[in-house]
Amino acid sequence: MAGLGQTLGRAATWPLTLAARAVDPPLRAWQRRTGTGGMAAVFLAPNLLIFSVFVLVPLVLNFAYSMTGGTGILLGQRPFVGAEQYARLLECQDYTRPITCREDQFWTAVGNTAQFVIFQVSLMVVVSLITALILNRDIRGRSFFRAVFFFPVLLSPVVVGLIWRWILQRQGLLNLIMVKLGLEPEVWLNDRVYAFAATIGVSTWAHMGFYTLILLAGLQAIPRDLYEAAEMDATPPGRVFWRITLPLLGPNLAVVLVLALIRGVQIFDEAYVLTGGGPGTSTLYLTQYIYESGFASLLREPGLAAAASILMGAVLVVLTLIQLWLSRRAEGRKAR
């Protein structure tokens, strides 16, 4: 059997092997000219080229776009307007009331995203911490349950959105449960508050498995003898949790917090499929604002979208720097 598998495997990679053989002679000639060290450039080139064209160049161009106006997509056709787009986004009489802002949609999106992040991240940290603590106990079928909570993480955001749209619809499962419990059915996604809560709940459902894994890895790294010592001293479990588990889990918890923040700020796909930003603008989040002002609305404004995305990017850079610093510190602690 193993022989057959090997033969099949070879047959499948045969074209690749042929290609690899074909590129060897020219590369050998190149190596003769540049020496062994010069080959580093050859190996780096493809990745670096794609990377430059599709990440670095756009990154620089983004600033250029944010300082131009009009609706054209080619940079050459766009008039330079300086900081006008930023001024448009930031001009506001009363920041607590988006309606008084020049770009009221932007401020609505900022407000919604801020609220979303506060609620979703808190919920996420609490739920995944509880799950990690439970999975860290000595229970039967631990690897099975670890997999269970990870299942939604793999689903695509579109699938996640559709699964829950189907459950929350008028004739859906949730209303069936409501009726069985003797409660009034609701059209959940037509209600501003319920729709907002749904985006929080659904995105937590979809991603908590990921954060649970990070926390579980942290819990398993806590030395067992600390707990044994606590047991010898008959320390109450609550105290063990506050004095041993939580402080030692601190770095992982911080990483989870910041990662959840970074991803929360960018919330788009599943919320978009679930509610489409509605009802009204109650679930309009920043990425959807950027997408719509740059691509989907009748009046496309790439400059405005670029400026908004740079503002969002600035927030993300700060958060990522905090995350890098935190994980450095966590690494350092582990090494010690």
Binding site: L59, I73, L74, Q266, P302, S309, G313, L316
Partner: peptide, 9 residues
């Protein structure tokens, strides 16, 4: 999501 516009261009 931060470089949508320039990446598109």
């Amino acid at each position: 999501s931060v470089i949508l516009v320039p990446l598109y261009s």
